[in-house]
Amino acid sequence: MTDNTLPTCLIDGEEVPFTPGQTLIQAATAAGKYIPHLCWHPDFAAHGSCKICTVKADGRFGAACTIEARAGMTVENRTTELDDKRRTLLQLLFVEGNHFCPSCEKSGNCLLQATAYEVGMMSPHFDHFYPDRPVDASHPDVLLDFNRCIMCELCVRASRDVDGKNIFALSGRGIKSHLIVNSESGRIKDTDFSAGDRAAEVCPVGVILKKRVGFAVPIGGRKYDVSPVSAQVGAQAPTREEA
């Protein structure tokens, strides 16, 4: 269903049409092509921090979520070289935090984990940092497990741009970067966060978890048990146009 009136770029040798102004990942997603990503979400402005969507556009490395598609642009995406880099980036994320999948209720529905499966990450490779990141279970309906945070700031964006609440922010710098919440006590119960917020459902990993609903789907039936993340492009259909 290629619209002949649209300009196209070439992603891994396939022609992908785009509307001017679209980023590479938007164009690819609309065409059902998978570009691995973590911090990008179709409903929110591009962030460009995880770098998992790094592609080679006309020979230059760049994040597909921040590069505007141009007619005739040649893009390398799922090459050995790029998937190698993605695997290393994922390994860095895994050792930076505490990602113990067997005891995480997000397991099977986790974008970090699914992306790591997709690029064949068999081990975290690096030495683990094992940071000390206490859990915040103070809220009646929601649990915050910071051990799994990958600093994608999707919750920051959702709370600010959709919920209008600004519950979350990143503070600290460098490897000491960490998620904070909008209260003097530093605890989520002292904010006006609610389980109905968009920010409560946008976390791609297992940091923001609704209480009393964990492990509802048995192993085998979870989102990425059914099919790999690369086969689910468009499964999270955009609910609104990006600003």
Partner: peptide, 18 residues
């Protein structure tokens, strides 16, 4: 060969590490 989660990333026992 590292066989299984604990060999690969420390697993459950490593949750004492903090």
């Amino acid at each position: 060969v590292a066989l299984g989660a604990c060999a690969v990333n420390g697993g459950l026992p490593a949750q004492r590490n903090h």
